[in-house]
């Protein structure tokens, strides 16, 4: 299970996407699904940086990719303030342009792009976000 450590900087987003994109390709996903995995992980790590840590800092964001028989599991670990994406309401999408609000879209994208999104937090292990993408049947 390859794990890579990144520091909390938005400048690392491209490298993070390259890392998970590589493992999504190894798991046999097509380009569209690789993009979906990269987008979900980009949104998740951006949230950790902007809302969890709240600033650029040397703190860790560890990402583990595990190829499964039926897809790919990506686990993201961080030590930021707990931030449970499951508590964020879904944005209202099918509304007029004027009523569209910039809130919760990143988390909504994560849920839409992946088949499973699960969050856990504990004082000793920090935050763990597990996302699974399965091959279409």
């Amino acid at each position: 299970m390859p794990t890579k450590r990144f520091t909390c900087s938005l400048k690392n987003l491209e490298e993070i996407c390259d890392f998970v994109g590589h493992w999504a390709a190894q798991a046999g996903f097509n380009e569209s699904d690789i993009y979906a995995v990269q987008l979900a992980v980009d949104e998740a790590t951006t949230n950790i940086m902007e809302h969890g840590y709240g600033r650029e800092c040397p703190s860790r964001i560890d990402i583990t990719c595990e190829t499964l028989e039926d897809g790919l599991k990506v686990v993201i670990y961080d030590d930021a303030d707990p931030f449970n994406p499951e508590t964020v309401p879904e944005p209202e999408i099918n509304v007029s342009l004027d009523d569209l609000k910039p809130r919760g879209l990143g988390i909504f994208l994560m849920r839409k792009m992946m088949d499973e999104v699960q969050y856990e937090s504990s004082p000793d292990k920090g935050n763990t976000l597990t996302m699974i993408k399965r091959h279409a049947r």
Binding site: E31, S32, I34, Y35, A36, L39, K112, M113
Partner: peptide, 9 residues
């Protein structure tokens, strides 16, 4: 890929 994600949401 970008178009797919845009339409999906």
């Amino acid at each position: 890929g970008i178009k797919d994600s845009l339409n999906l949401v």
